[in-house]
Amino acid sequence: MNELTNQQPVPSDARVFNDATQLATNVEPMIELRGVYKRYGSFEALKNIDVTVGKQEVVVVIGPSGSGKSTLIRCINRLEVHDEGTIVVDGIELSDDVKKILQVRRNTNMVFQSFNLYPHLTVLDNITLSPRLVRKQSRKVAEAKAMELLERVKIPDQALKYPGQLSGGQQQRVAIARSLAMEPNVILFDEPTSALDPEMISEVLEVMTDLARSGMTMIVVTHEMGFARQVADRVVFMDSGEIVEVGDPEHFFTTPDEPRAQAFLSQIL
């Protein structure tokens, strides 16, 4: 566990931002979106999205319901297909090329609001399925790794249970372990604590904080302002399919520049 906390990410004050949607000049990009549009019929769910996420960076995305937050991160692992613009993930540009899509999905992973664990498999099988089938690990190796990860999310004693027998907080930690088992470079979180009872939120946020400290690149859609302030390197505010403001959390939460961001924050804080 200490191994996780030792590796500190680059302190954010060391970065020099030219334009807030772009990266500090001394950081390598992990995810780049250029002029991305997503349409449902004539409705534009994403409009001209430009954003770059650096290696080991933690970006929190906030915004009102229906503003396109989920759509944005789901375009990054191709659960949604964007209509215009380019998306490059870890050096691979997303297109109709199935091989590239698979490669991107191997390098990234996603944690969902509703957990989406496989209910017919045990916790251990939930975690080891993809490593065994996709990464061709032997059952033995995969299970040893899975136990390590369950240790890391603090529920090693639940390995042989089924998801239905766990609490929401435990299920979400299993989902995080399942993502980590594929050893991704990026994890996308879509409101990971929104379906949880208040007393379980902190146990999940704790795991996510550890993960951020370990240097994982993360994009997190969340309404947890405390987490955003403590852990995020940057906050992206979206409204009506557009990125309205990008800034470092302290600045954003105290003195946002844009009126729409001010209005949103005054509503939820």
Partner: peptide, 9 residues
Amino acid sequence: EAARANGLT
């Protein structure tokens, strides 16, 4: 979606 996101074909 979970299976896809987790790399399964």
